[in-house]
Simulated scan of single mutants.
Amino acid sequence: MVSGGVRSILGEGPLWSAPDNAVFWVDILGKRLNRLSLEDDTVAGWDMPEAIGWVIERERGGLIAGFASGFAELDLDPLAIRPIVDPEIGVVENRMNDAKADCFGRIWAGTMPFSCSGETGAFYRLDPDRSCTRVDAPYTIPNGPAIAPDGATMFHTDTALRTIFRIAIRDDGGLGARTPHIVFEAGWGSPDGMTLDANGHLWVAHWGAGRVSRFDPAGSLERSIALPASQITSMTFAGPDLDRMFVTSAADGVDEQHGGALFEVDPGCRGLPTHKFGG
């Protein structure tokens, strides 16, 4: 099923908002934020002044967004953007790419080069007090992360390496070593966005292979769901019971009927609640 009728150049960052009963997603290169209402299937959209990688809800209301110029508060009605911090001042060749909030109200976000080549990207943690810490580098195309409910473990990838890593999160917010968890086989494309379901299985978007897959806790492929677009970028569980899955895709560089669409698939399981930024 294709939802919303919107086509993105580079759809990414799907986010389930329970308060809005809606799914947000971004078009990074199209510089646009979209919102699909699950009440009536209507789509609203907002043009942004620069590339936008993701949005995350904020505990006190509104959104936090990852722009090419860094972290910012984002209000939609009326539209207002208030910068928080640029972790890479002067690095104009980079942009934000993917992020998640954890159970402690922290945001984990990666940066990458617009060109998708060269290890100029890094991984950052934005704490509720708005301090920003560089926690890992280098990266070419950081994607994920998927963070365990207790906030002690994350799964993260550098898409360019075709490997998903398991990383321990220390009590002080620092990270342990990247430990290879899943190495993509030939024909699988490259790992992109990820999320965990309520059973502890990892869902992964296959960029270049037209599907999403579910991996068991040991990292073995459990099943895949094919989609009518090749460049699949990320997914989120949605709905009051968290039993619906919405999947983003990209049209950049391909000529496909459904490239860049937002899809809905039946995951056959439930997801985890969406965490918010605590600051």
Score class of each variant (00 low, 15 high):
residue 146 A to F: 08
residue 107 I to Y: 00
residue 117 S to N: 09
residue 117 S to W: 05
residue 125 R to S: 04
residue 115 S to M: 08
residue 117 S to M: 08
residue 149 P to D: 13
residue 111 T to Y: 02
residue 127 D to R: 12
residue 131 S to C: 01
residue 118 G to C: 04
residue 117 S to Q: 13
residue 146 A to Q: 13
residue 120 T to M: 05
residue 111 T to E: 02
residue 128 P to R: 03
residue 105 G to V: 13
residue 133 T to L: 03
residue 116 C to W: 11
residue 142 P to C: 03
residue 104 F to E: 13
residue 105 G to M: 04
residue 115 S to N: 10
residue 145 P to I: 07
residue 112 M to Q: 09
residue 150 D to F: 13
residue 144 G to I: 12
residue 120 T to P: 03
residue 115 S to H: 07
residue 122 A to Y: 01
residue 108 W to K: 09
residue 130 R to V: 04
residue 124 Y to S: 01
residue 146 A to Y: 12
residue 116 C to T: 15
residue 113 P to Y: 02
residue 150 D to V: 15
residue 133 T to F: 05
residue 141 I to R: 07
residue 134 R to G: 02
residue 134 R to C: 09
residue 141 I to M: 08
residue 116 C to K: 14
residue 110 G to I: 04
residue 150 D to K: 12
residue 122 A to I: 10
residue 112 M to H: 05
residue 113 P to S: 09
residue 149 P to Q: 12
residue 113 P to I: 12
residue 120 T to L: 10
residue 111 T to H: 02
residue 123 F to M: 14
residue 139 Y to G: 03
residue 138 P to W: 05
residue 135 V to D: 00
residue 121 G to A: 07
residue 131 S to P: 01
residue 115 S to P: 15
residue 106 R to W: 01
residue 119 E to T: 15
residue 116 C to N: 15
residue 127 D to C: 06
residue 104 F to C: 10
residue 114 F to Q: 11
residue 105 G to A: 12
residue 124 Y to M: 02
residue 125 R to P: 00
residue 111 T to F: 00
residue 137 A to P: 12
residue 114 F to L: 13
residue 142 P to I: 07
residue 148 A to P: 07
residue 132 C to F: 03
residue 133 T to G: 00
residue 149 P to V: 14
residue 135 V to M: 08
residue 139 Y to Q: 06
residue 122 A to V: 10
residue 131 S to G: 03
residue 108 W to R: 10
residue 128 P to I: 08
residue 110 G to M: 06
residue 128 P to L: 02
residue 126 L to I: 09
residue 126 L to Q: 00
residue 107 I to E: 00
residue 113 P to M: 05
residue 146 A to W: 11
residue 114 F to H: 15
residue 125 R to M: 10
residue 120 T to H: 05
residue 131 S to A: 01
residue 107 I to Q: 00
residue 134 R to M: 10
residue 150 D to E: 14
residue 129 D to K: 10
residue 133 T to A: 02
residue 119 E to A: 14
residue 133 T to I: 06
residue 125 R to A: 10
residue 126 L to S: 00
residue 112 M to T: 15
residue 105 G to I: 10
residue 145 P to R: 05
residue 121 G to C: 11
residue 148 A to I: 11
residue 112 M to G: 08
residue 109 A to F: 00
residue 128 P to Y: 02
residue 124 Y to Q: 04
residue 120 T to V: 15
residue 124 Y to I: 08
residue 136 D to G: 10
residue 118 G to V: 12
residue 149 P to T: 15
residue 141 I to E: 03
residue 138 P to Q: 06
residue 140 T to L: 03
residue 135 V to L: 04
residue 119 E to V: 11
residue 135 V to N: 01
residue 105 G to N: 11
residue 114 F to S: 03
residue 146 A to E: 12
residue 138 P to L: 04
residue 150 D to W: 14
residue 120 T to C: 05
residue 141 I to N: 04
residue 133 T to Y: 04
residue 148 A to S: 15
residue 129 D to I: 14
residue 140 T to V: 15
residue 129 D to C: 11
residue 124 Y to P: 07
residue 123 F to R: 06
residue 139 Y to S: 03
residue 113 P to K: 03
residue 141 I to W: 06
residue 107 I to H: 00
residue 127 D to P: 00
residue 142 P to R: 01
residue 126 L to E: 00
residue 130 R to S: 08
residue 110 G to N: 04
residue 109 A to V: 05
residue 108 W to A: 08
residue 128 P to T: 13
residue 142 P to Y: 04
residue 141 I to C: 06
residue 150 D to L: 14
residue 147 I to F: 06
residue 114 F to N: 14
residue 112 M to N: 09
residue 131 S to D: 01
residue 147 I to N: 05
residue 112 M to I: 13
residue 105 G to D: 08
residue 108 W to T: 11
